[in-house]
C-alpha cells in the first residue's frame, strides 16, 4: 500500500489500520531469563478468570504475526541475541511491554554474571508493568494503557 502523505485516501487508511490494531493487537511472549513467575501470570491473563482476549489481544506463536512483544525477566547473555532476533522479525509498527521488576530493572538478579541487564538496555520499551510478579489485573491494565496510547497515533 502506498504511504504517500499527499495521497488523498492515506489518512483514511491510517485511521483504519490504527483502529484494527487497537481492537485486535496480537502479542508474542518472550522470556529472556525470568523466574517463570511473570510468565505464569501472563498465561493466567488468557484464562477464563481474566480473559484478556475480550480486549482482542491474542497470544501468537510467531513473531511475524505479532504487534506487541511481551518481555519478562532480565536479559541473560545467551537469550540477548534471540530476544533481538525475535524483535527484528516483527513487522512495523511494533510495541514492547516489559513485565515485572526484572524486566524493568534486573530486579533481584542485578549483578549476576550471566545477566546483561534489563529489557530497555536491549530494546525500546513502550510500557512498563511493575511487580514481582505483577498481578494479572496489572498486566491487563498495562496492555490497555498501551492500546490507549496507540489510539492517539
Amino acid at each position: 500500500m502506498t504511504t504517500d502523505p499527499n495521497y488523498p485516501w492515506q489518512t483514511v487508511f491510517d485511521k483504519l489500520k490504527t483502529w484494527a490494531r487497537v481492537n485486535s493487537p496480537w502479542a508474542i511472549h518472550f522470556n529472556s531469563g525470568s523466574c517463570n513467575g511473570c510468565d505464569i501470570e501472563i498465561l493466567a491473563t488468557l484464562t477464563p478468570r481474566y480473559d484478556i482476549e475480550r480486549f482482542g489481544v491474542k497470544l501468537q506463536g510467531s513473531p511475524r504475526h505479532a504487534d506487541v512483544l511481551i518481555c519478562t525477566g532480565p536479559v541473560t547473555r545467551q537469550a540477548r541475541e534471540r530476544l533481538l532476533r525475535t524483535y527484528e522479525q516483527m513487522p512495523e509498527p511494533k510495541f514492547v511491554v516489559a513485565v515485572g521488576s526484572c524486566a524493568i530493572s534486573g530486579g533481584v538478579f542485578q549483578g549476576c554474571y550471566n545477566v546483561v541487564g534489563h529489557i530497555d538496555e536491549v530494546l525500546p520499551v513502550n510500557a512498563y508493568i511493575p511487580g514481582c510478579p505483577p498481578r494479572p489485573e496489572a498486566i491487563i491494565d498495562g496492555v490497555v494503557k498501551l492500546l490507549e496510547s496507540i489510539k492517539g497515533k
Binding site: 522470556n31 529472556s32 531469563g33 525470568s34 525477566g73 532480565p74 541473560t76 545467551q78 537469550a79 534471540r82 538478579f109 549483578g111 549476576c112 554474571y113 550471566n114 545477566v115
Partner: peptide
C-alpha cells in the same frame, strides 16, 4: 540449556 541461566549460585555468595 542456559537461556535462563542467571548465575544464582554465584550471586548467593555475594
Amino acid at each position: 540449556l542456559g537461556y535462563v541461566h542467571r548465575g544464582i549460585e554465584k550471586a548467593v555468595e555475594q
